[in-house]
């Protein structure tokens, strides 16, 4: 009785899942993603796998929840004209073929009985990359603060690889009006193809790789890159959801539970960005990534319970921190607002 209350039966994968863990992962992905402006999908596949989902199901479920999450944000960006649809549609080919190859690779590994360990080790590498980026970014910010510069990000503007790449003259050459450049169609197709494979293989949106590629390799203005990337994330999510479902590797119940958690979490995360100050929280984020990496390794060596404790503990800590930022900030803002109104009313009287 006690046991069955905490565990939800997943009808397709046939596993019993600790549902509070599922809700927590969904909520954290929303909160952390909303706060740092970087999709939190990297923690979903390992998290679901640690909770007991077979690896292929974890990937399929992750990619489907990305599709749901990205719908609204894409609509918002397209309202502001931040999406270059021509570029988006050209990239669509590469993304879809890439996702399919990634998914086929997973199915092939599954047939060989190696999908669990291989994906887990690739994830360890991938998370090492993310944590390196976060800590490196922090280090740079601290250095430039010491040197007295205000904006540490400007150093990246010197990179103009795209100018060389635009000279590649393989037909068809296409002019992208919104983004404002002309290049060989193969350039965006290749970029989206590679990110597509990664997205289909790891069950992520691929924005982590696609965003810098759009800006530095393709030469997109940053705001167009953000919108177009979101459009691409949506397409890759939808196509990924479709192809993984067709392969029978999805758990709809989990997708819906996580989407609900993510929608609520995303609001808290995005509101919290308004009140957050300083770089300290980035260290927390980096630590969460490292904790996630450690829990994958624990899972790989069979310590399932400690793996679950590490990952759930780490993401709840960071969530509590973000929520406290949000609550403090929001309370202060509402208090100020009320006081202003009271003062205005007193003035009128």
């Amino acid at each position: 009785m006690e046991h069955s209350f905490w565990y939800l039966h997943m009808p397709i994968a046939g596993v019993e899942i600790f549902w509070p863990g599922l809700v927590l992962i969904g909520f954290s992905v929303g909160t952390i993603g909303g706060f740092f402006g970087m999709g939190g999908a990297w923690m979903v596949t390992p998290g679901l796998n640690i909770l007991g989902f077979p690896m292929a199901f974890a990937i399929g479920t992750d990619i489907a929840h990305i599709a749901g999450k990205s719908m609204v944000s894409t609509m918002r960006h397209s309202k502001f004209g931040n999406v270059d649809y021509k570029l988006g549609f050209v990239m669509l080919f590469g993304t879809m073929v890439g996702i399919e190859i990634g998914a086929q690779l997973i199915m092939w590994l599954e047939r060989l009985g190696r999908v669990g360990p291989v994906v887990r080790w690739v994830y360890v590498g991938f998370l090492a990359l993310i944590s390196f980026m976060v800590f490196y970014d922090y280090y740079k910010a601290v250095q430039s603060k010491k040197a007295g510069r205000i904006d540490g990000e400007k150093g990246a503007e010197g990179i103009t690889w795209y100018k060389t790449l635009h000279k590649i003259n393989i037909p068809p050459m296409i002019h992208f009006k919104t983004a404002g450049f002309t290049c060989s169609a193969w350039l965006p197709i290749m970029v989206s193809f590679i990110t597509g494979i990664l997205a289909g293989f790891l069950g992520i949106g691929g924005g982590l790789l696609r965003m810098p590629a759009l800006v530095y390799l393709i030469g997109c203005p940053t705001h167009i890159a953000v919108g177009t990337d979101l459009f691409e994330v949506m397409i890759s999510g939808l196509y990924g959801a479709f192809t993984y479902t067709l392969k029978g590797r999805i758990e709809l119940v989990a997708v819906f539970v996580m989407l609900t958690g993510a929608a609520i979490g995303a609001q808290i995360g995005t509101v919290a960005t308004k009140y957050a100050k300083g770089y300290g929280i980035r260290i927390g984020f980096g630590c969460a990534v490292v904790a996630c990496m450690a829990s994958i390794i624990l899972k790989q060596y069979g310590f399932d319970v400690s793996a679950a404790v590490v990952i759930l503990g780490a993401i709840s800590l960071i969530c509590v921190y973000i929520i406290s930022i949000m609550l403090k900030g929001a309370a202060a803002e509402l208090r100020d607002k009320k006081e202003r109104e009271r003062a205005a009313a007193a003035f009128q009287n």
Partner: peptide
């Protein structure tokens, strides 16, 4: 499985949009 896949995509996308708009209102 084909119909199941269509359902999965439609429902996920629809639920995503629903959540987005209801969160905006809240």
């Amino acid at each position: 499985m084909w119909l199941f896949a269509v359902w999965a995509v439609v429902l996920t996308a629809g639920y995503g949009v629903f959540l987005g708009f209801s969160m905006d209102i809240i």
